[in-house]
């Protein structure tokens, strides 16, 4: 270690707060200067308006964007669709993650366990877009799915470019983000508790329901934060695999910023998911998602 570094480290050692501050400085600038400032700017902009012909922003305080959002049921409908699909994806991922997580932690030897872990993580190495486009090809009219169904003599499914397609693709995309925290939570349950449950005469499912499920709840909620928020904020998947009536809040925001140039209206609509996430995180905290942090 060179001399100046040594000096710095001894300062950090003697005065503990210096070390803490220097570790936090960069993230603090990031969080305060960029993230909070951006949200603040968005909130302020949502009260502005746009000159229709010139496209210039008109600063001020006007509720016209919020009134337009409330007056047209379309926007409430799109918000409902977004939240509903985000919730459906979260529930689906919880159900799919349990068997994988349980097998990984309780039933596998070290080698199989490493293999399963790799299988869960490898899709994350490929581009998100490549995986969505792959699903588009699987689900399309003459895609792999309908080909396979025809091979076994079943009628084809017309789920390409639909809300069903979005549900399947989102559930696939975010599954690893559910499996990992659930596996971690299952691992933390002491085996002695499961044995005690068995000794007291509970059969397998009752043990799962009354011992494992409540103890793994924080892990499930932690995973749900990922799957729910990732779905809630997405707009690329609806654009690529959605059909008619598949717009998300993100698509309306995207269309108003990049296409229509009505940034204040987009900002007003973008305030909504912020509120949804705030409520979601409060409930998650009540359920103990942050206890293990």
């Amino acid at each position: 270690m060179s001399a100046p570094l040594k000096a710095l480290s001894s300062v950090a050692w003697r005065r503990g707060w210096v070390g803490v501050m220097s570790l936090l400085a960069l993230p603090a600038v990031w969080f305060g200067g960029l993230y909070l400032a951006a949200i603040g700017a968005m909130f302020v902009t949502s009260f502005w308006t746009v000159d229709d012909m010139s496209g210039a922003l008109i600063p001020g305080f006007s509720l016209v964007n919020f009134k337009a959002l409330l007056a047209d049921p379309t926007y409430a409908h799109i918000a409902e669709r977004t939240v509903f699909i985000a919730a459906a994806v979260t529930v689906t991922d919880v159900i799919l993650a349990w068997p994988v997580a349980y097998a990984m932690v309780r039933l596998s030897g070290p080698r199989l366990r490493a293999g399963l872990m790799a299988a869960v993580l490898i899709p994350l190495w490929s581009s998100y877009l490549a995986r969505v486009y792959a699903w588009r090809l699987i689900l399309s009219h003459d895609g792999v799915l309908n080909w396979a169904l025809a091979e076994v003599g079943l009628p084809g499914l017309h789920i390409g470019y639909s809300n069903w397609a979005m549900w399947i693709v989102f559930s696939y995309l975010w599954l690893p983000f559910m499996i990992l925290p659930v596996a971690a939570a299952v691992e933390r349950i002491p085996p002695s508790l499961l044995e005690a449950s068995a000794d007291l005469g509970e059969h397998g499912f009752a043990t799962f329901r009354r011992v494992m499920l409540p103890m793994a709840l924080p892990g499930m909620v932690a995973g749900a934060i990922s799957t729910f928020s990732l779905t809630l904020g997405d707009y690329v998947t609806p654009m690529l695999v959605g059909g008619e009536g598949s717009d998300f809040i993100g698509n309306v925001v995207y269309a108003n910023v990049g296409v229509t140039n009505d940034i204040p209206f987009a900002a007003a609509y973008a305030v909504l998911p912020l509120g949804v996430m705030a409520v979601f995180l409060l409930i998650a905290r009540k359920m103990g998602a942050f206890d293990a942090l």
């Binding site: 399309s140 009219h141 390409g160 470019y161 654009m239 959605g242 059909g243 008619e244 009536g245």
Partner: peptide, 23 residues
């Protein structure tokens, strides 16, 4: 018409793919 639509296309290449795949 919205209930009859497969997809509202955003780029010309989207429509080309829809017709190519038979959607």
């Amino acid at each position: 018409q919205a209930g009859l639509i497969k997809k509202y296309w955003a780029l010309a290449s989207d429509e080309i793919q829809l017709f190519t795949s038979g959607d």
